[in-house]
Design a protein around this nucleic acid. Structure first.
Length: 126
DNA sequence: CGCGTGACTTGTA
DNA sequence: TTACAAGCCACGC
């Protein structure tokens, strides 16, 4: 019988990662979020690096990782995985996300406001 | 347990 | 605009 394979490695059964992945899944199609924003939604403020780490540890299609970019709208995957960066860009463009001439995502237009429909209590943006 | 590194962010020059 | 430094946490050696 086939046993359901865990989405993550045994060593990564951390609730922290689970939160991060959950936050990433919340990002709507056609929108993007920065690592810091994902961290905040996951309840882990100032832990953007951990988000990147969690994504790296996540399964290939476990989460819409392509919707996560750095605060500058740049695909951080760039040098580490050029192919992955290309895939990310293709997927984003496929979702309607547009890029700047410098190859950066237009955060001003596609930045996930984490509450366009349901205002977040922690939203200090006002 | 200490050190270096990393799919990051913010502030300063 | 680019470059450097400090802060943050987890992983691998």
């Amino acid at each position: 019988m086939k046993r359901r394979v865990p989405v993550v490695r045994p060593a990564l059964e951390s609730p922290t990662y689970a939160r991060i992945w959950a936050a990433v899944r919340r990002i709507p199609r056609g929108k993007v979020a920065s690592y810091g924003q994902v961290a905040e939604v996951a309840g882990l403020p100032r832990q953007a690096r951990l988000v990147g780490y969690a994504l790296h540890a996540s399964a290939p299609d476990s989460v819409p990782w392509h919707r996560v970019v750095n605060a500058q709208g740049v695909l951080s995957l760039g040098k580490l995985d050029p192919g992955g960066a290309l895939t990310q860009r293709l997927r984003l463009e496929s979702e309607g996300v547009r890029f700047d001439a410098r190859g950066r995502v237009k955060m001003d237009e596609h930045r996930w406001k984490m509450g366009e429909r349901a205002r977040n209590r922690a939203g200090t943006h006002g």
